[in-house]
């Protein structure tokens, strides 16, 4: 993991606008910056554009207008072959998990390491460790189709953090788990945050947000982002 001084921005949006095809602008003039090492909630009503905003952050979409600066790189002027290196510094928990159905929990979590060319011996060591940490020690060989919603979610989270990302983006990571496990996952995120990972958790779970009210919050509504502290 790279150690960057706290306070330096890990990501910055300048007047970013986004529309899908010819539809209305989902995001308008979104401007904000996330300091390195921060932990933010991203809140807003359903359909406000939380997932879309995260998609721009993990480079799954290009903005229709405006500027995205990630790890001090202006994305618009970054060469295509340089993007994978940036993406590897980001861990993503997708709202719909996006696990590969034909792979076991272990292989799903191993994916970011395989993509990086990490040796199998390392993978066999670290992946089961992390999976037991999220309470799936006895599900290493299970395919996603045999896992519950909450278990899938934990596999997805494990996959997002296995590469020790500098930036972790989680889209409704506690949507399918009971309160107990939700708390456990939040503690995992806080643990990672203490180690230096910048974290954004998109959620509309108000009780979760208020229980971790010490973390700042970005609120998204009508295509605009406002800071709530």
């Amino acid at each position: 993991m790279r150690h960057r001084p706290r306070g330096e921005n890990i990501i910055r949006f300048d007047s970013v606008g986004l529309r899908y095809g010819l539809g209305p602008e989902v995001l308008r003039d979104v401007t904000f910056a996330l300091p390195s090492g921060s932990f933010h909630f991203l809140t807003g009503p359903s359909g406000a554009g939380k997932s879309s905003l995260l998609r721009l952050m993990y480079l799954g979409l290009r903005p229709t207008r405006g500027r995205v600066v990630l790890f001090d790189r202006d994305i618009a002027s970054t060469r295509r072959y340089e993007l994978p290196a940036l993406r590897r510094r980001i861990g993503v928990v997708f709202q719909e998990f996006r696990l590969l159905d034909h792979l076991t929990a272990l292989d799903n979590v191993a994916l970011p390491l395989r993509v990086r060319g990490v040796r199998e011996s390392e993978i066999r060591k670290h992946v089961p460790e992390l999976l037991s940490w999220v309470g799936l020690a006895d599900q290493l060989g299970a395919k996603p189709s045999t896992l519950s919603g909450g278990q899938k979610q934990r596999v997805a989270i494990a996959r997002a953090v296995i590469g020790r990302p500098d930036l972790l983006l989680a889209d409704e990571p506690t949507g399918n788990v009971d309160d107990h496990i939700a708390m456990r996952l939040m503690y995992l995120f806080e643990e990672l945050n203490k180690l230096g990972t910048t974290i954004v958790v998109a959620t509309h779970n108000e009780s979760l947000v208020s229980r971790f009210a010490h973390n700042p919050r970005l609120h998204l509504e009508h295509g605009q982002v406002t800071r709530v502290n």
Partner: peptide, 16 residues
Amino acid sequence: HDIIEVLHLIGAHDDY
């Protein structure tokens, strides 16, 4: 397509 997109998003090079 879905699998390819996931691989792409977690940082796989095109050649991978």
